[in-house]
Amino acid sequence: QVALSRTQVCGILREELFQGDAFHQSDTHIFIIMGASGDLAKKKIYPTIWWLFRDGLLPENTFIVGYARSRLTVADIRKQSEPFFKATPEEKLKLEDFFARNSYVAGQYDDAASYQRLNSHMNALHLGSQANRLFYLALPPTVYEAVTKNIHESCMSQIGWNRIIVEKPFGRDLQSSDRLSNHISSLFREDQIYRIDHYLGKEMVQNLMVLRFANRIFGPIWNRDNIACVILTFKEPFGTEGRGGYFDEFGIIRDVMQNHLLQMLCLVAMEKPASTNSDDVRDEKVKVLKCISEVQANNVVLGQYVGNPDGEGEATKGYLDDPTVPRGSTTATFAAVVLYVENERWDGVPFILRCGKALNERKAEVRLQFHDVAGDIFHQQCKRNELVIRVQPNEAVYTKMMTKKPGMFFNPEESELDLTYGNRYKNVKLPDAYERLILDVFCGSQMHFVRSDELREAWRIFTPLLHQIELEKPKPIPYIYGSRGPTEADELMKRVGFQYEGTYKWVNPHKL
């Protein structure tokens, strides 16, 4: 086992960053958080920038500027975001240094004079007029057009580079997404736009490419001749908990499936790229999406959770019991969808996408189930092999396979070949997804960000279904809070070829 401390991990990262040409360590950078008073800024962006600063992973002359409508001070920003920093008493001095680099400007999102004030403020910072500028839009999409237009007109660096990070949702359907994309691309070049999907920053999602293309053993079996089906799962054990009003506007397909799960599907299904260059990788992902037809209604199961009468606390409440959810809402909190990649490698292999709230566990994984062994000599005792990439929690890679049961006879039983990170790298604290992705933006690497043509294809696949749901308002199937979801989803999976045995229990190697 390799035991690495946080300091050692960050030392390795620093070495990698400083050796590259793309990370300008000594240049002045300004990180501007648009929507600095909001939840995302408070819980994710400010803490992430602090962790990067604490670990010495930001360029040395980096300033952080918050911008929002609320009249706040840096002290206010500190008060609301610091509880999420997880700072230790030993880091007190470092924390003071961090907040000394912070400033805040209040202004409207659609007022040109406010942006001119913001620009004057940035120019007044040390070497601010020639600094590289990175704008993070932690804002609702309704203000994107006004904000990007004003940034472009008043706040661009004339000497350094300018980059803009856009948070999902990128529209509600193909038409609104196209409108937003066309607007942003009329102001910024594609190499300046970073559409963030934080799932692409997760260690195991990034590991998929290495697993596939750096190991000879997987190449020959990664196709329709050997793989019976692919299941991509995202499960949350909690409901909307008072935030249903926002969720109800989008629903589970827009929230998770059309982005996170579809991105994971691309990494499983794509061909080997010409290189690890950002556009070479994204070219292959677009090719996969172009091979997927629009979702067919007979390959869809929609569910909505109801309270568990035997549960406790939140578990007793259904989705419609959330006071922020519109009365009688038919918005799905669970969806199972089957897609097919219609190309030579994957023809006929079902890709089953499942996601839901208020389920029995927290889990995100990719599961490849292989065909049955031909010419069975073990009297149907063999179960199908599976390769599982567990994204969260407890990152893991393992192969479910058959071995001989101890004893006199040739009785096979299920076991696993474990390729888990935790076994080799004991207690290594890896940077989280937002840390990686923000560092990628500083480096100018777009590999783990969504390109406009990729986004367009993703919406093309799901828009007809979303429009049909909005028009017909089908009643989702009720499922109990804390269950596996509607049984109809299991029946759909069985119908397209997935075999669920229920006889195997994964042993978490992190707890051995």
Rank of each mutant, 00 (worst) to 15 (best):
L353P: 01
Q369M: 14
L439T: 07
D279Q: 13
T403C: 13
E361L: 06
C443G: 10
A489V: 14
Q380E: 13
F370G: 00
L417S: 13
L261K: 01
T503N: 13
V306G: 06
H448R: 10
T403L: 12
I352E: 00
E386G: 05
P412N: 06
G422N: 07
Q499T: 11
A489T: 13
Q392C: 10
C291K: 09
L353Q: 00
K429Y: 11
R327Y: 04
K473N: 10
G482I: 00
K404G: 15
K357Y: 12
K473Q: 11
R495H: 09
G328P: 06
V507N: 06
K363D: 13
V338Y: 03
G348D: 03
N411C: 09
F351C: 01
I389D: 00
E284P: 01
N423A: 15
Y479H: 00
S329T: 09
F498Y: 13
G375T: 14
H379T: 09
L339Y: 01
G444N: 08
Q381D: 10
I469C: 07
P476S: 07
A335F: 00
E395T: 13
D372S: 07
G356H: 01
A433Y: 13
I377W: 15
F351N: 02
N394V: 10
D280Y: 10
K404A: 15
P474V: 12
R436T: 15
A274H: 13
L465Q: 03
K494H: 10
Y319W: 07
H371R: 11
I477H: 09
D372Q: 09
W506D: 14
V391C: 15
R495L: 06
V388L: 11
A336Q: 11
F370S: 01
E491A: 06
D372F: 03
Y340G: 11
I292Y: 02
K426M: 12
M257P: 03
K272G: 07
V338D: 02
Q468T: 12
A374I: 09
G497V: 14
S483D: 10
W346K: 01
A396H: 15
R384C: 10
F410G: 07
V338F: 02
Y481R: 13
A433W: 12
E294A: 09
V256E: 06
T420M: 13
N299A: 08
G328L: 05
G307V: 03
S483V: 04
K317W: 09
S452C: 04
R460Q: 09
S329I: 01
R390K: 15
K272W: 01
V397K: 03
P326F: 05
Q263W: 11
F498L: 10
L289T: 02
Y305G: 02
D283M: 05
T420G: 15
G356E: 00
I377F: 14
D279G: 06
K383I: 12
N259H: 15
N308H: 09
F498T: 13
L261Y: 02
P431W: 07
D418E: 08
Q258K: 12
D283T: 05
V496C: 14
V337T: 12
V301S: 04
P350L: 01
Y421R: 13
E470R: 13
A269D: 01
P412D: 06
A297H: 09
K473C: 14
L465C: 09
E395K: 15
D322C: 07
M402W: 11
D440W: 02
F378D: 02
V373P: 13
K272V: 12
V295N: 03
D453F: 01
E342K: 05
L492A: 04
E491L: 08
P393F: 01
K290F: 02
L471S: 12
L387S: 00
F334K: 02
K511N: 12
N411Q: 09
E344M: 08
S275D: 02
P464D: 07
V397N: 04
F409G: 15
H371C: 10
E472Q: 12
A358D: 00
R436G: 14
T503D: 14
Q392F: 09
A332P: 07
L387I: 07
G482E: 03
K357R: 15
R354E: 13
R362W: 02
E271K: 03
M408K: 10
H260M: 15
V441K: 01
D255C: 07
M270K: 00
P474Y: 09
Y434M: 13
V341Y: 01
K405F: 10
L455E: 06
I438G: 00
N277K: 05
S483H: 05
D432G: 12
N508D: 10
A374L: 09
G356K: 02
E491F: 04
E457W: 01
V281I: 11
G303T: 01
D418K: 07
V366N: 00
H467D: 13
E470Y: 07
A358S: 07
I480D: 11
D418V: 05
K317R: 11
K511R: 09
L387V: 14
M493I: 13
